[in-house]
Design a protein around this nucleic acid. Structure first.
Length: 464
RNA sequence: GCGCUCUUCGUCUAGCCUGGUCUAGGACACCGCCCUUUCACGGCGGCGACAGGGGUUCGAAUCCCCUAGGGCGUACCA
């Protein structure tokens, strides 16, 4: 056990998105690798936008990805007493003050400053004010006026900003609620977080938070800012780039290990390696190999990884997942062939679980109709003899293993002089209704003798 | 606008710190060929990048400067 303490601190204002998931993953991996502690904290100080549904969705998504935490979830909404006492501390020490400027007035000032080519910052109107009128107020933190604030980011290196670029941050709203930049400092410090790994949209906040750590008497933790994830147009990833919710990918038939593998490789690498299990990652992940630049989310590569994990996945496990999907579609899987056997025939030809379920349907439901073009070509009067031969040979089998089926076909071909090309398509249409399916021997064997004979006879009958 | 920051194939990246082994490697996608009873898988091959410009150096993707472009921030959101 090391003393490394990291955290993931989502705000519950929506589902867990791709970017958040990657941040959570990096935290998780480092905690596991260093045998440190991974804390989960819910940042719900925005009462307007925070919802329980979002909390549940985030927890569910983390669970799906396999990102377990050691402590939490802690809710900021339950820690207001702590924040209040810290506000008082600051007030008493003269490091914070009441500001009576209205939001409207502030906005106007910002716009004016922008127009004049200046910085749209708070101008410090109330900073030295000593009276305390009865009107509404916010509390601001007194940011140092001169000098500069710098820190060494574990990913980006040294980042330094002049303090006169910063203004006095609001730490408590008019309604008495504390704000993000204040509580995040208190919580990270109070929870003993010594390395903050978060999105690099927070780089600018970091230099504003550091003076607060100092004012509050806390030790400043280390920081590691992970680059953003962009859409194909290099704009910040959003809905218009497609699904951004992690769970939406589960719906689409993605495996969590594919998502984890994809996410970690977006911005991090380990030589030429592409495939990583969670255990590999825990061993190999390091902040030093995380890139500094933003990356574009590439659904094609995610799909390729998913394909890989489907291909190499345990048939038994995949069977459970596909069964769920099929049942959801109202398919009766109780009276069909063994699902794991079905899965094995589909693993090399499905990119997603959804595709696999689609491809598996015919195993459980006899074709109601035949694909028109296919039937015209492969289920016509000329094929009557072929169907009869098939029924005879396959009907005569005592066992129906892949080998049995294969040899039955072979003897049929020898006897009739027909090549597989003349028989296969007919069998395929009769059995599946279409022209695309796994290998014909596999299909026949997995389907089982009774079903195969029934479907062949049905096809024969359809000839009229 | 201002501040912070980033920049190698279309995309993810290796290489950069410790200049030469880089006619820049891998992966996804794309194209072609092979395999093949269908669809796929697979195998082989191809296309394709050091943002631009200046330096420093015998030599620069690697070091320095400038320019351009991108991202983020600039909220009583987080």
């Amino acid at each position: 056990m090391s003393d490394l303490r990291v955290r993931f601190a989502p705000s519950p204002t929506g589902f867990l998105h791709i970017g958040g998931a990657r941040t959570a993953l990096f935290n998780y991996l480092l905690a596991k690798k260093e045998q440190g502690t991974f804390v989960l904290r819910i940042e719900d100080t925005d009462v307007e936008r925070s919802t329980q549904e979002s909390v549940d969705a985030i927890l569910q998504a983390m669970d799906w990805l396999g990102l377990s935490y050691d402590e939490g979830p802690f809710y900021q909404s339950e820690r207001y007493d702590l924040y209040k006492s810290k506000v008082s501390d600051l007030l008493n020490k003269g490091l914070a003050y009441r500001c009576y400027c209205s939001a409207d007035k502030l906005n106007a000032k910002r716009e004016a400053a922008m127009k004049a080519g200046g910085k749209p910052r708070y101008d410090g109107t109330c900073r030295e004010r000593t009276d305390q009128p009865e009107s509404p107020f916010v509390i601001r933190f007194k940011t140092p006026l001169d000098g500069n604030t710098a820190f060494v980011d574990r990913i980006k290196g040294t980042i330094s900003v002049e303090n006169d670029e910063l203004d006095d941050l609001i730490i408590q709203r008019t309604d008495g609620n504390p704000t993000y930049n204040f509580v995040v400092v208190i919580d990270d410090a109070e929870m003993g977080i010594n390395l903050v790994i978060r999105g690099d949209d927070h780089v600018n906040n970091t230099v504003r938070q550091i003076p607060m750590y100092k004012a509050l008497g806390y030790e400043v933790p280390e920081f590691a800012h992970v680059p953003m994830i962009l859409g194909s147009d290099k704009k910040r990833l959003s809905k218009r780039h497609g699904a951004t919710s992690v769970m939406a990918y589960r719906e689409m038939g993605f495996l969590p290990e594919a998502m984890v593998n994809y996410l970690v490789r977006l911005g991090w690498s380990c030589g030429d390696e592409e495939i990583f299990s969670m255990d590999d990652l825990i061993e190999k992940f390091s902040l030093e190999s995380v890139g500094r630049s933003a990356g574009v989310f590439n659904p094609d590569k995610l799909l390729w990884l998913n394909e890989h994990y489907i291909k190499t996945g345990d048939p038994q496990r995949l069977a459970g997942l596909v069964a769920e999907l099929l049942e959801g579609q109202g398919v009766d899987i109780e009276n069909g062939p063994d699902m794991a056997a079905v899965v094995k025939t589909l693993q090399e030809r499905a990119k997603t679980l959804v595709e696999m379920a689609e491809g598996a349907r015919f195993y459980f439901e006899a074709p109601e109709t035949y694909d028109e073009a296919a039937a015209a070509k492969f289920l016509n009067e000329e094929k009557r003899a072929v169907l009869e031969l098939l029924i005879k040979h396959l009907g005569a089998l005592m066992n129906f293993t892949l080998e049995d089926v294969e040899s039955a076909f072979k003897s049929l071909m020898e006897e009739s002089g027909l090549k597989l090309g003349k028989i296969g398509p007919t069998v395929r249409v009769a059995l599946t209704g279409g022209t695309v399916s796994p290998s014909i021997y596999e299909v026949v064997s997995v389907l089982g003798q009774d079903v195969v004979l029934a479907r062949l006879k049905k096809a024969l009958a359809s000839l009229g």
